[in-house]
Design a protein around this nucleic acid. Structure first.
Length: 318
DNA sequence: TACATACAC
DNA sequence: CATGGTGTATGTA
């Protein structure tokens, strides 16, 4: 986010953390990951040209299969309420409007308003550090009853667009809008705009929406896991990242078109892909120099060589 | 099978 | 002073 002095934020977090039990534990974990990285690097160094071309063949075949099985016929929409808990609190107490606000307490905060984020305050940050970053930060304790109440309201709207909508948390859901677009002969963009507007009318809250041709179907993910090749998920697309792009109160439409999908994916940092977190990101970067999804495809053979051992071994047992 | 780690919210 | 609670998936012994 612009206007955040990242270095200063990092320094304050470090100053407040060092010496604590939490900090020591983090250091221990980091050392463990370093070790893992070293061992993977060693494995990588042992691979011969022949090994690599062998894995390359397997990977090429798999990529072709995946490319061929891509389904561009559906339209999926992902919604994500903007700073949900903070927005609900502000709605019920307008005095909080425009103020840096954190929902939670001194030990942990769940949500930070956008004003608070300008100071580097984030969800999942301990409150006492957040207060150091932003001394005028207002704390409100969590009221899950309220959030559930507003969540119900948004879900009533969702069900009008897709009765089988999939809620993944109080403030997020997936909707399949293929039918509704067809029935009413309107574009997914119009559906997204209308949905956002309806939610605002019904609740007074804003949300961000992403539209794309797939939501990484559970069945499909399962197949990838079976072959021990989770990382190829990046070949597909991740709808949550779409709703992330024009946040807050925005929308992003990825057309049902192979080239558009590939272009979108290619420069996407792997960290944005669901399932790739802080640790996996570090391992892929430091072992194989991978940081974008394109590089995942380019280095597919090495990935397969280093990360599919267990699964292949699992197959050999049968 | 059981335990630890990683991830997401 | 102080670093969550819950659910899911994966890797490993």
């Amino acid at each position: 986010m612009e206007g955040v002095d990242k270095e200063k934020v990092q320094r304050i977090i470090y100053e407040m953390s060092k010496g604590s039990k939490y900090f020591e534990n983090e250091k221990r974990k980091e050392a463990f990951i370093k070790q893992k990285i070293e061992s993977l690097r060693a494995q990588r160094a042992k691979l011969t040209e022949k090994d690599i071309s062998h894995f390359q063949m397997i990977v090429n075949k798999r990529i072709l299969e995946l490319d061929g099985s891509r389904d561009l016929s559906k339209i999926w929409l992902h919604t994500d309420m903007d700073a949900f808990y903070a927005a609900v609190e502000t709605l019920e107490n307008p005095l909080l409007k425009g103020k840096p606000l954190a929902v939670g307490g001194m030990s942990m905060i769940c949500t930070a308003s956008y004003e608070a984020r300008k100071y580097g305050v984030r969800a999942a940050m301990p409150g006492f550090i957040a207060r150091k970053l932003c001394p005028e930060l207002i704390f409100v304790p969590t009221n899950f009853g309220k959030y559930t109440y507003y969540s119900e309201k948004t879900r009533n709207v969702f069900s009008k667009y897709d009765p089988d909508y999939i809620a993944t948390s109080l403030d997020e859901a997936y909707l399949e809008i293929t039918e509704i677009c067809k029935q009413r002969s309107i574009s997914s963009e119009e559906v997204a705009a209308e949905l956002r507007n309806t939610i605002y009318q019904e609740t007074g809250l804003t949300c961000s929406v992403g539209v794309a041709p797939n939501r990484m179907l559970a069945k499909f993910e399962f197949q990838l896991v079976e072959i021990g090749y989770t990382d190829l998920i990046a070949l597909y697309w991740n709808i949550p990242v779409c709703s992330d792009i024009n946040k807050p109160n925005g929308q992003f439409i990825l057309p049902n078109d192979r080239d558009a999908v590939m272009t979108f994916i290619s420069s996407l940092p792997i960290r944005k892909v669901g399932g790739i977190g802080k640790v996996t990101e570090q391992i892929l970067r430091e072992v194989l120099g991978i940081s974008t999804c394109t590089e995942i495809l380019q280095k597919g053979a090495l990935l397969h060589a280093l990360f599919s051992h267990c699964s292949t071994g699992w197959y050999f047992r049968y």
